[in-house]
Nucleic acid binder design. Structure first.
Lengths: 358, 358
DNA sequence: TACGGTAATTTGATCGATCTAAACTGTCAA
DNA sequence: TTGACAGTTTAGATCGATCAAATTACCGTA
């Protein structure tokens, strides 16, 4: 490409803007803007002319420019602690859908359980001008992160887990009673030595699930010696180590409530490796009821939380909070439900299996 | 500066801008801007003064305003076909990391296998001014979607699947030879009647995996009557139906290559329900080697693709394409590797995941 | 015909940053 | 003293839209 020493200026004009459309349609910038925003002020004949020009010239709206002037982005930031956990992937996806349904956009980001990354993401989101944030905080989120968020005045809520819970909006599931359901079920089946596997990470969900376990055990009159908590990372590999530790304990527990399905997955696999049949020789309960977990064999009995319900409640609340930033903190707690399948040996009605004639 | 009680306007001033910082630090807007962009032009004494003011006043950078003027966003859009598939969640997460590492930002969006949603997402991304797009196209993506993308001049590439493949940049895995590895393994173990389960969706990955199956079967001299393709949706529920269909076929296949691990998951579960032991009575091969799949029991033999490698190649290519938009289409194909575990009955050592090359 | 009032459209200022080109500072050689 | 020349800093103009207020068009009615 020959580069002429053009003494004047290069013919750079590229982007199609409002002005170009206005010229083509024989109207002013302002009118085009009204058409774009579907204002009822525009006469329909004019609207058609403008829309034709829009089409013709291949106009692309510039949201950055628009929101610079208007001060609005109609965008909510969604920060997920770990998108590779199917429960949260599902949650993120549902939040996205619900926001779109309400006419809002979302920016989804994954902190990967890194508080530093989470801080960077939050900063970036503010720089992008999101009007609100739905945050699933990482384990070990600094209180200062939340305090700074509060100070900044940006509407936000915490979902499924929380830091400084009482002082911020929150939407989540009932971890405490969810685990209780699991323990109740096991006790009803005659188990007394029941272990809790998981909860190595420091966040409210972890603490509450463990507390639910303790409380349920005590409520059933099961003493300290019948309890056993083996923390582990939320990961089948570490879950495997943890369940071996449970099996080595004396007196040996006959059942385990797992932190979540991901942990239960590793537990079930390891039990099988040990020649112990889950649902016959040992009972296992999960948590979350991940969409895919019903196909594990033996099918997992677990505490079900529908990510969609949490997502919809979160979207509902964040949009209300954006509209009324000064209203007080609000909490929405989704109730869990126990889904009985095969892994506790309880009689179960569900379809796909017929092996366990118990 | 005294603010007289001008009877009209409210004292709205809220946002801290460059002007405020400039005033506080006793310099001009321009200098503050230079500091923000870490320009070496600024004298260090000045820089410190500005940075102090930045800190003091709680300045928040406005990316929208900056990119309006500069014309740059340093952002790449990432469109994922289905974020609830752990393979893609992992991929998205790795893309995000690689971009951040290179000093770029990403906007991640999930089309949920909906072409309409995908179109809306692509439009929105252009409106946000992304400088490039990494697209994992949904099944049934219209050619026009891709053509429009080409016409628009926005640098983009397709990842893992493609439409109009030859004419656009592409980064993906070798589906064809991946499946071949699976078939080869089964044939080496003595299987002759081998079914292919999956591939109900219309996209290149699906077609290529099926073609790989056919080609491998033919290469081993296995006739039409020893082949069997049962399409199914990528979902354990439908996979369950499909494998039952395979079992009902006569002569009955002794092994199945599955479209991916998600399908294999449903297949393994259903086989167990039928009293058929995977790895003993029937052989199963998956595809993807999802990070969690090694903990399925019996452990799944599968074709491994590291999402990280695909992600890094995609980021590398899109950044090069953004830098040189006029260079021709380029293809990067990541080679698969067979990971032998238990589900084919091949001799395997201990442990959850011991891998051997195919 | 003039008038009032609503509907439709236009104009100039503005959002908060970056760009460009010009101007300033200080040092050193002529 | 002057001028050259890096190294710093600055003052408008500018990006592409929206806002607010003003203006014009249009209609029916007095």
């Amino acid at each position: 490409m020959a580069r002429y020493p053009s003494p004047s200026r290069p013919p750079k004009r590229q982007r199609v803007t409002l002005v170009d459309i206005a010229a083509a349609a024989g109207v002013s910038r302002g009118t085009v803007s009204l058409v774009l925003r579907k204002s009822p002020l525009v006469r329909s004949a004019t609207r058609e002319r403008v829309e034709a020009a829009l089409q013709e010239l291949g106009y692309v709206y510039d949201r950055g420019a628009a929101s610079l002037r208007s001060g609005r982005t109609s965008t909510v930031g969604v920060v997920i602690c770990n998108i590779t956990n199917p429960f949260y992937a599902d949650f993120a996806s549902q939040v996205d859908l619900a926001l779109e349904h309400a006419g809002w956009s979302s920016i989804i980001a994954n902190s990967g359980e890194s508080p530093e990354r989470q801080d960077r993401i939050l900063t970036r989101m503010r720089e992008h001008g999101v009007e609100g944030v739905i945050l699933v905080p990482t384990a070990d989120t600094a209180e200062e992160t939340i305090r700074a968020l509060i100070r900044s005045g940006l509407p936000f809520l915490q979902a499924t887990r929380h830091v400084l819970g009482a002082r911020t909006d929150f939407v989540g599931q009932d971890h405490f009673n969810g685990v209780r359901l699991g323990v109740d079920h096991l006790v009803a089946l005659g188990h007394r030595h029941i272990a809790f596997v998981g909860g190595g990470e420091r966040h409210s969900a972890s603490a509450e699930r463990q507390a639910g376990y303790r409380a349920a055990m005590i409520a059933h009159g099961l003493a300290e010696r019948e309890q056993l908590v083996v923390p582990c990372v939320v990961d089948p590999v570490d879950a495997s180590r943890a369940i071996l530790e449970v099996l080595a304990h004396r007196p040996r527990p006959t059942a385990a409530v797992c932190f979540n399905d991901h942990v239960a997955y590793g537990v079930v696999g390891t039990l099988i490796d040990q020649g112990i049949r889950p649902g016959r020789d040992f009972a296992v309960v999960g948590f979350d009821d991940r969409r895919d977990i019903a196909f594990l064999r033996p099918a997992l009995t677990t505490v079900s939380i529908k990510p969609q319900r949490v997502a919809e409640a979160a979207v509902d609340l964040i949009l209300r909070r954006i509209a009324a930033p000064d209203e007080g903190p609000e909490r929405t707690i989704i109730s869990p439900r126990l889904v009985v399948r095969e892994s506790c040996g309880a009689p179960h009605p569900t379809a796909p299996s017929r092996e366990s004639a118990g």
